[in-house]
Write a protein that binds this DNA or RNA. Structure first.
Lengths: 214, 214
DNA sequence: GTCTATACACCGATAGAC
DNA sequence: GTCTATCGGTGTATAGAC
């Protein structure tokens, strides 16, 4: 049927416009800050009047929502993309992941702010937008389990440690490396503690010979 | 002179009104969120019209500034207040401080947000408001030095670790204790790493016999 | 001196013409 | 779909009453 192809073409055009809007929102956010994004400025950049945006987007928060989902999807795909580069060694692997997360965060502070801090007044990510964030956490849990790190407390601690380094870096030395260079040390410290804590309860292999990867 | 006492009385009244305004701002912030504070709502609570606030305050950011300074001063005084209760033992002392900071943060998330996150669009704390924050950091450095922790990297790491626990707690389990109960473990982990890292470079006393306190 | 009244420029959002 | 016009908000500023 011709109707369908036409409908698809229209739908594609609509989606493209939506992407344009979200991309313009990213631009404004990076230039002026996340909270300083205005519909009028977005509209100006895509060549519209502000109210016309409502033909493609239900609200300003829906734009934030799309950005939120996009950011977490980006990170998730990034992690999957480097899968074959993961070191076999447990310590190196943990550092590898942490460095990936750290660089991703520091590389785009505005994106990190949207992903991890509830800073925009009325905005709460929708369940659909939150899904890729959950997927990332599930991935993390699975990968850590491959290293014998299965206790929720242990994963919680690791998440908090890396998040703490990122936050300190962004807050107190943006653009620098004052906390970034503490990543390796933090990972070693964490693993040493882990071995001491779980000693006698769950055997943890120092190398990772039983890990199967495609 | 009568003129001076009168001037003082007026000045006192003015200062009291200013305190009232800042206190109302805290109320609004805790009820609706830090970014949702409006001058009109503050004015309503102190029985004024919004523009009348400008007789006591130069701008909205000056209110945030006063709140910022007040929060850090509160913390600083709190730390000084518990001075005599600090354990002699290095590990216990570190945990004691961390717990104090953690509880202070978790007890009033809005206050912590204002103190440690740059989340309000146009607001940057003035040098005067920042002073008590600097004083707290200097205090921390001094106290850690008493335990032989003098390297900036070591202090940086400690700050990041505790901050990470606080952030995770507030972001992922507000009102709970999922990351709070990791404080002791984190302190032990940190100290163990410290002893290994600085072994052979700077002797670190396991007990703290040479600490002089009034 | 302190307040009220009024206004300005901006914001997100909506209604309705075309 | 996109426009203009407009609404109820916001922070901020000023004129003028008392």
């Amino acid at each position: 049927m011709l109707g369908e192809t036409k409908r698809n073409r229209i739908s594609e055009r609509r989606e493209a416009t939506r992407r344009e809007i979200v991309e313009a929102a990213w631009q404004v956010a990076r230039e002026r800050g996340l909270a300083e994004v205005t519909l009028r400025e977005i509209a100006r950049r895509v060549g519209m009047q502000a109210p016309s945006l409502y033909g493609h987007v239900a609200s300003k928060n829906e734009i934030y929502d799309a950005m939120f989902a996009q950011a977490w999807t980006q990170f998730h795909e990034g992690v999957r993309g480097i899968d074959q580069a993961i070191p076999e060694d447990r310590e190196r692997a943990l550092i590898f992941f942490a460095r990936h997360f750290f660089d991703f965060a520091v590389h785009d502070p505005v994106r990190y702010q949207l992903m991890n801090q509830r800073t925009i007044p009325g905005f709460e990510p929708s369940p659909e937008a939150y899904a890729p964030a959950v997927a990332v956490l599930e991935d993390l849990g699975q990968r850590m389990a491959e290293f014998g790190i299965t206790e929720q407390e242990d994963v919680d601690l690791w998440v908090a440690l890396i998040g703490g380094l990122v936050n300190s870096q962004l807050a107190n030395d943006p653009g620098g490396d004052r906390w970034g260079r503490l990543l390796e040390r933090t990972a070693r410290m964490y693993l040493r503690d882990l071995d001491l804590t779980t000693a006698g309860t769950t055997p943890v292999p120092t190398t990772n010979g039983d890990r199967s990867r495609a």
